[in-house]
Design a protein around this nucleic acid. Structure first.
Lengths: 361, 361
DNA sequence: GTTGCGAGGTTTAGCGGTAAACTTGTGTCG
DNA sequence: CGACACAAGTTTACCGCTAAACCTCGCAAC
């Protein structure tokens, strides 16, 4: 029964604007309460300093009764802030999003945290650098979370005026706060674990990297541990892109042929490691009998393979919580152009021992 | 150089609004081109019928040179439409989002499709029914995608005036278009496969369901196939919630004790099945030697377990594409209150044979 | 030569909300 | 007892964009 006037027949040709929605607005509440719109606005926004307790209560009661819902676009337009944080995720050549389980955990976790603090999450795949700044400007965003952007891209970005948190970034861009795990230490733990098991010749498998990003640091830590223990670490990196389950599997299939000396592999992501184990098994090898495998991330998943995957676990809840905390802190401090660079955060990692690492054959 | 006036010292106490951003707006272009703002607006929105080709070109050139980016909130406010589609996901008691790999594929895929058509995706966890309608009103949403909402909840929903597509829903709500796989057929395929392998006593494992939702239909199809083949199907459902890897594992651990006669299990989700296989292995059983396992979804993941998981695969790309297509179609047809109910869509499924099903012990 | 009409605009009046400046009544202090 | 601060509002002027109504030619038809 809400709307009486029917839509005017066959005008529904293309992109028709919808008829003005029947919605409760501030002025409705103001009329009913006998106060000005501004007073209602103040009440609704918690700026209650200027309003008497009696009025506050009356306004709130009326708002609740009428079912007031603030109009986000209007508020964004007028206030130049939107209560929206964009989660930006780079898209690959397949042009699609949310590829790794890890990315998912980050985006979902951020949404949960931010929602509880009254913010909304815009999910957006980024194809070109420019789209970042455009998105910020077009939406009056309150903040931006960059999820797993390559460091070079983060450094190129010119986002001014909003807080930017980059997950898993070691970029030097002073406008961006990096939040990541202690990847060097993680690599070290992996190397040390393989060394302790007695391996002498091991392989590092991950996506290509330049310099010291997440993967670079894992490699550095791994290599350092290997060197210290006197074992030889090969880096498969230069040769190909290794990012998916399937990439891992393919490496597993040709591992014996291409790396006959290798008795253990450190994969920089659990899903890569799981694919690797599958490939090794498929090629007739056994884990950890013929080859030991150690992963990185501590995904759910890695507990349910056979054998279970020994892995360097990140503290995902902490990572997400920390990123959210920093984001909110900066938003609510009104961080703008002039914000001084903030220290990045690195979170601890720890080894989760399952069954995929054993002594060399 | 951009801003001369510095922010006024220590006023940055709480929620300070940012200083008005320096941004290119329609009027800047209009001034430069010597036309009215409306003309520019028309050019930008493709309503070029009323503008001469010469003017169009001039305006576009200036817009490009100045780096115009439309202001989304302003447009939403004035036009009562936002180019935003919300992806609504119910939150569990853990209050967090994007739990299953399947959900992720849906949300990511929708974003990709919609982005290419100029729409944006708002990701939002839903705690109470009301939040759905509130979100629609507050944002002038163009459309809503309900991802894996329980049918009862979809039926309760009163969303008027925007197209609503519900993924994996069989709800009767005429305002909602359901898009799902052919779950009954999927269940049937699973049952038939186990029957063909010679099993006589099988178990159905999934989350609790009431009536004929996704899980109910999988069960119905499964049971039908079992009956037809004369084998006995038990339903573990009433007893507990089975949704995660870990739930699957726990079932696997006590399978021998609780269901000694059972020689095969149909799990309604691949990650459940993967957990199950892990649990069985952990309890000393073998798959498919002691127990066969068949899954549902066709996740990446399921190809990389050992043995590989035989599963009923959904055509996820098609599902997402279809949902996007319907969404866009309805938005661009200006679907409002009066929209006639649209037929739901069911997509085909097929069996992917890997190694987890064999003859009974 | 007036009417008609369509192409190519312009003008007007908001959309719902907010910041900042302004008003008014009241207690308080020197 | 006047000046002055403060509480509790109100008023004004937008934010950037759009729908719809209005204007104004030049040309074709009668």
């Amino acid at each position: 029964m809400s709307v009486v006037v029917p839509r005017m027949g066959p005008t529904a040709d293309e992109e028709g604007p919808r008829d003005p929605p029947v919605t409760v607005k501030l002025s409705d509440i103001a009329d009913e309460a006998g106060v000005s719109v501004m007073t209602v606005s103040n009440v609704m926004n918690g700026k209650r300093a200027k309003v008497s307790p009696a009025t506050i209560e009356r306004v709130l009661a009326i708002a609740a009764r009428l079912g007031y819902v603030p109009n986000i676009p209007a508020r964004s337009l007028a206030a130049h802030r939107s209560h929206i944080v964009a989660a930006l995720v780079p898209v690959g050549e397949n042009n699609s999003l949310l590829v790794s389980p890890h990315t998912v955990a980050v985006v979902g976790g951020m949404e949960t945290h931010l929602r509880h603090r009254g913010y909304h999450v815009l999910l957006r795949g980024i194809e070109h650098d420019d789209q970042v700044a455009q998105t910020v400007r077009g939406w009056s965003l309150d903040g931006v979370v960059l999820v797993e952007f390559p460091d070079e891209q983060v450094d190129r970005l010119e986002v001014a005026g909003v807080p930017v948190v980059a997950i898993d970034s070691y970029a030097a861009n002073p406008r961006v706060v990096g939040v990541r795990s202690d990847d060097h230490e993680g690599g070290r733990l992996a190397g040390a674990r393989l060394a302790a098991a007695g391996h002498r010749r091991v392989l590092f498998a991950g996506p290509p990297y330049r310099g010291m990003g997440v993967v670079g640091r894992r490699w550095a830590g791994f290599r350092a541990a290997c060197l210290e223990a006197g074992l030889r670490a090969d880096d498969v990196e230069a040769r190909e892109v290794l990012t998916s389950f399937e990439d891992g599997r393919r490496l597993g299939l040709r591992l014996r042929r291409d790396h006959p000396q290798v008795t253990a592999v450190f994969a920089t992501a659990d899903h890569l490691a799981v694919g690797l184990m599958a490939g090794i098994a498929e090629a007739g090898g056994s884990v950890p009998g013929d080859v030991s495998v150690i992963g990185f991330d501590g995904l759910d998943l890695s507990a349910y393979t056979t054998p279970g995957l020994t892995t360097v676990a990140q503290d995902m809840p902490a990572k997400v919580a920390e990123a959210s905390r920093i984001m909110l802190e900066q938003i609510e401090a009104g961080r703008g152009l002039d914000a001084p660079a903030r220290e990045p955060v690195s979170l601890g990692v720890h080894l989760v021992e399952r069954g995929s690492v054993g002594p060399p054959r």
